[in-house]
């Protein structure tokens, strides 16, 4: 059974949202893309759309109002949402700060740390997986 990819872009930067959506669309992916302006809304959306048969890709920004990326991860881990190993979280930040990169590694649930802007080739390989 072919699983669908459901994409969540959790980021308060409108331009980043726009660029990501457009790029994904241009690459011809038919995945549904949800834009969430902060971690709290992102979490709500994830719980709403969650199904263990589907593959989720989350592009998670670090610095956001209300619930930032780190708080999102904390909540995500405490709710044990990835019991079926069907959610890939990519931490996305304009930061090139080594502290953030190290922290992402240590959290244990981040697939990869991506520095903005995400290269087109990167999108292609993520969507193909």
């Amino acid at each position: 059974m072919k699983t669908t990819k459901i994409i969540l872009i959790i980021d308060d930067d409108d331009i980043h949202q726009y660029i990501s959506k457009k790029t994904i669309a241009k690459l011809g992916a038919d995945s549904p893309v949800f834009s969430c302006p902060n971690g709290e809304i992102g979490l709500e959306k994830l719980l709403q759309e969650y199904s263990k048969d589907e593959h989720f890709i989350i592009f998670l920004d670090i610095n956001m109002p209300i619930m930032n990326g780190w708080e999102f991860i904390e909540k995500f881990l405490s709710l044990n949402l990835n019991a079926n190993d069907n959610i890939d979280i990519y931490l996305v930040s304009s930061s090139t700060d080594s502290v953030d990169i190290k922290k992402a590694d240590e959290s244990g649930c981040i697939k990869e740390f991506l520095s903005k802007p995400i290269a087109i080739e990167k999108y292609k390989s993520i969507l193909k997986e």
């Binding site: 980043h16 241009k26 304009s94 930061s95 995400i118």
Partner: peptide, 25 residues
């Protein structure tokens, strides 16, 4: 240093993102 990392790079990353998109089109 924190400002450099988080604030100044934000518009640059947007510009680069927009460029990516424009090139595709």
């Amino acid at each position: 240093a924190w400002t450099q990392s988080h604030i100044v790079r934000a518009p640059i990353s947007r510009i680069l993102g927009i460029l990516n998109l424009i090139e595709m089109i």
